[in-house]
Nucleic acid binder design. Structure first.
Lengths: 362, 362
DNA sequence: GTGAAAGCGCTAACAC
DNA sequence: GTGTTAGCGCTTTCAC
């Protein structure tokens, strides 16, 4: 750690040239066994670890793939923490907790799972993963930085503005993940949001005798949300159910926003069905309904979208559409790897199938 | 992407030397505004992004920090997936789901949260994060690789064998995360496992009139598990409760293993309390108890450890000890950053406080 | 099978 | 303020 040994150190110790050291590490068979062993011993003795930077420079590839997420935490909202400064706090505190807290994590679960899948697939191909999160405006700085350090980049839809995306794509292969395809210039991976929501809507309409559900939408800028809304509309149209009859409520994908909508539902009279554009909000609706003693699915049916674990544990359990999150991450890396192998190939768009999960709430 | 522009290209286009280009990027104030603008324009026009490898080599620092986890997925258990090959699957399928499935994710949540915290703190300090996962034996290859690419490494306890840890530490600063401290050669960050479990045990003993709980242990090689067991024993000793009276059951940290233990509990007669070394298993116990109509906490009290969200949603909600997972990740990076600033400082060990969360189950 | 030498793209003295 | 130049640690022809 004082000063890391280099090929030169290893070469000297083994009594060979640096070229031979390099060969031993990269093409062991091209070196006579005796020589090879001497070099390997020197490597071990010195604790030699090749410099990724030097390798990357010489090889013109880094062996690193990047994954870039939209910010999940506002820059202003970062709680202070300084483990070096304080430290005199006791080893534990005791708190009493009653109701379930709003679970801020669930929204991150999608990203976590994608990350898992991406890491797995990157590893299988001999790459390591670099992860970045877009925060505020210098966000662009982070992703540009990453572009300079990786062989390819997976970018979640909505994390990078279009012009920047083009710039990045000029530097390294880029795969856009989730949302609808945006032009045909980039590789793209997504799930069947539209078809999944349409199928779910058909199921709900069948249950409610075709009466129009209330739709609980998410933030306007959610690409996936838009696709789900599309699927909902399409199924309605197919069933001959006029879109005008549909009441649309808006939330921000959090459980508490769903809770508020649920309370309003109760106040204004229950519809036959409430279809939420994500699970979190649906769970919030269920919370409010449960508190008011409403019978789900007896009085109305409720559905979500995503397939988070909490939906399987709620009462009643939540009917939803499950997206293959981990597979999404894996697929993105697979597509990226293909692009690396075949730079000239036409950009592709892959759509992964979803699962309509019928449970208690509908 | 055909061939990325370099400083030379930028310099030529702006009519300056490469040194000036470098200056504009690193110390803009050291360059006359007119020159600076010309360079910046050239950068924009060309879509120039500096090579991380070249920078890293010249600067002798990469600006990357590494985070290395123990494997969460067995190499054999990786489901096949090839999005490039198949593709003719329908856009969705419909499934019916009744009971809650075993939630394999919960065990990863800890890692996910640590990762979140680490990424956040790395970003705040101008670093980007590289993540790796130990799998099988060439695992060592991954982490060595990482060591060659980063300025510092956070390694989860149990992910790297001791000798390899020493080698890594020779190359880059290393912070060990979780578990008990292992010698005093490395920086170390953990939570108050022992004290937390001791406090919880005292609470349980108070409720049960000092009758010995059944202890549900995890895998033997879990460093955190060992600390929790220690805390349990300490509290028992303090209370004058003989350890011989304690029945110990073993699980593997999964919900289903907890369920099995719960069933056995019912078959063999209920104790006054069941204390599990993690939440997942405690939830499994609750599942079994619930299915058998046992009243918790009336007939016996149950506790967990970790503070996962599912514990707040179970019936009854789970009394547990919450570890500050995200803060752990942040703390690890903070300690790593300190080490980078002060290479000579004595290795430190930071212990984060935990929260004893009293809920319905005890 | 092995060595000498020319880069890879950048930073940082050091001159001017 | 700006240009020249010498590395940073590795891979990879090209000779031998």
């Amino acid at each position: 750690m004082t000063k890391a040994p280099t090929v030169y150190d290893v070469a000297e110790r083994a009594g060979v040239s640096i070229a031979t050291v390099s060969r031993v590490l990269r093409t062991p068979d091209a070196v006579r066994p005796a020589t090879r062993d001497r070099v390997l011993d020197a490597v071990t003795d010195l604790g030699y670890v090749p410099s990724g930077s030097a390798r990357g420079l010489a090889e013109r590839r880094t062996g690193v793939l990047g994954l870039y997420f939209p910010g999940f935490d506002a820059v202003e909202g970062i709680p202070p923490l300084d483990v070096l400064a304080d430290g005199q706090a006791g080893p534990y505190t005791v708190v009493r907790e009653d109701g379930p807290r709003d679970d801020g994590r669930a929204s991150m679960l999608f990203q976590d799972e994608v990350l898992r899948g991406a890491e797995l697939e990157a590893w299988r191909r001999g790459f390591v993963l670099m992860v970045g999160v877009g925060r505020g405006d210098p966000a662009t700085a982070t992703v540009r930085d990453m572009a300079g350090r990786v062989d390819g980049l997976v970018v979640l839809a909505g994390s990078v503005a279009d012009p920047m995306l083009e710039r990045l794509a000029e530097r390294v292969p880029v795969v856009v993940l989730a949302g609808p395809r945006h032009g045909d210039r980039h590789d793209h991976v997504t799930v069947s949001n539209t078809e999944g929501m349409a199928a779910l809507t058909r199921h709900v309409l069948a249950r409610t005798g075709g009466r129009a559900p209330v739709y609980l939408a998410g933030p306007d800028d959610s690409p996936d949300g838009a696709q789900r809304w599309e699927g909902f509309c399409a199924a309605l149209a197919d069933a001959g159910c006029p879109l005008d009859d549909v009441v649309v409520r808006h939330g921000d994908f959090t459980r508490s926003s769903g809770r508020r909508v649920g309370e309003r539902l109760i106040a204004e009279g229950l519809p036959a069905a409430l279809m939420s554009s994500n699970d979190q909000m649906a769970l919030g609706v269920l919370d409010a309904l449960h508190a008011a003693g409403v019978d789900v699915p007896g009085d109305l049916v409720v559905t979500g979208f995503d397939g988070i674990d909490a939906g399987a544990l709620s009462t009643p359990s939540l009917t939803t559409v499950r997206q293959p999150m981990r597979e999404l991450g894996r697929a993105a890396i697979q597509v990226l790897a293909r692009r690396l192998d075949a730079p000239g190939a036409a950009p592709m768009s892959v759509r992964l199938p979803v699962e309509v999960v019928l449970r208690g709430s509908a």
